[in-house]
Amino acid sequence: MTRTIWGGIVILAAVVLLPVRAEAQPVLTTRCTIDNLDTNAKAEARVEWARKCGTIQNVGDPNAWYDTGLSAASGGTLKDYLESDPVRNPKGEGAFTGPDYGFKVNNSTVFAVYLSGPTYQQQDSRGYYYWLRDAWRKKGRALYPTFSTTSDITEQNNIQLFPHPNLADCRLYLDKNGTQPSATTFHVNGYCESACYTPEQQVLFSDGYVSILDALNALREDLITLSPDSTLDNLKLQQNRTYSYTREIRDAEHKIFVITTQSGGQLRVTHEHPVIDGEGRMVQAQTLKVGDSLVKADGSLDPIVSIEKTTHYGKVYNLAPVTTDLVSNVLVAQGFLVGSVRFQNDEVGYINRIILYRGMPAEVIP
């Protein structure tokens, strides 16, 4: 596919570009499919296992906390534990929490499972403090740490490691069945989360369409999204900023939906990828059927003429803008309106909800 297949310059000239002042640097996040946990319960269990093992093996004393100075919703101040010294051990050898979170056990744990909100504090059976938030603040898709033998996942001798499938101990294993304990140390390589695009798919940036892989490699920040006040009757694009890119750590096989429209357009995404349909509703790709419509960047509807289910071996990708409102998390990929990765994580509850409406306040639409 070429970068101009959807006439990016024409589309940009036909809409109003509104500036966004928020400043942000792209944050490269990761997920892996080989180490896939397919339910939030499993992901949360992995996170709790990492917290427990980190405190037992690397903290060693429930009283070795430091005071964050932050107020706990349950009273007092929040206590955290430093699992590794960032100065002496900056790569986190042997740590169960990653360097991105400064090896702060409770901070990384609550971030992986919850959206922002009041933070409560309790003590576990071993006397260690741990944090939690209201159940309704849980992410649609919890993050969880994934491990390997070196801190640099691009190293040739990097070997992926796995906890025991029953989380029976704090060792890491060479196999997912927990039969071959690793004799080497380990590192957290990232926190797994969902991704959606195959690498050749074109996403709209300020100078036109760029493949998601090229955008990730260049850490492109100049993302184009809908403006917050857009409706199906009045779509407006704005210059936004990229907050994060999502990619997998290792190649794996994915179920891909190849959606072809009447105009000849084609979208290749994973089955759970969020897409705007002809009713302005955010739906998963797997729910679309022939006769439904995708929405083009100019607001016109493009009926679906075929949907092919296939597979893609390799990595898939996604990204999110710095803005957090629902409408400005609608991107343009292959000329069609699709949702950012936030609709698979923080905003998963808005799937199958009308995001772009016509002539009616959004708050009265289910």
Rank of each mutant, 00 (worst) to 15 (best):
H187Q: 02
D214S: 14
K138N: 03
D207M: 11
V87H: 08
L356M: 04
D207A: 14
Q266D: 01
D85Q: 08
I212N: 11
Y243W: 11
L70N: 13
V188S: 01
E279H: 07
H187G: 02
L18D: 06
E200L: 09
V20H: 07
S340C: 03
Y129N: 09
P321C: 11
V10Y: 13
T68N: 05
V10W: 12
F103T: 09
L301H: 10
T150R: 14
A22F: 06
V188K: 00
N158L: 00
P90I: 02
R31P: 00
S230V: 05
T270I: 13
G117I: 08
P19F: 08
K315N: 07
I354K: 11
R51T: 03
Q156I: 11
T29H: 01
E23G: 01
Q202W: 09
S328L: 04
V283H: 01
F343T: 08
R133N: 06
E248P: 01
E155F: 04
Q123T: 15
I5W: 09
G208R: 11
I11E: 13
Y144I: 11
V327A: 07
E248S: 07
R250Q: 09
D152S: 11
G76W: 05
R247M: 07
V27C: 00
I153K: 11
K315I: 10
Y120E: 03
F257S: 12
D100W: 02
T231D: 11
N234K: 14
Q25H: 04
R88K: 12
F96W: 15
I153F: 13
Y128N: 04
M282D: 02
N318M: 01
D67P: 10
L78C: 02
Y114W: 15
R46L: 08
Q266T: 15
G7C: 09
Q180H: 07
D38H: 10
V87R: 09
T119L: 02
Y81E: 04
L17P: 04
D67K: 06
D207I: 07
P274H: 09
I304S: 08
L301C: 02
Q334C: 13
K236R: 14
L204N: 09
S116C: 00
L288Q: 03
L331R: 10
L132W: 15
N345Y: 00
V327F: 01
M282H: 01
R281A: 01
K139T: 07
Q160N: 01
D38T: 14
R3N: 15
L12V: 03
L132H: 14
G349Q: 14
S300M: 05
A218M: 12
N63T: 15
P181N: 02
L17M: 15
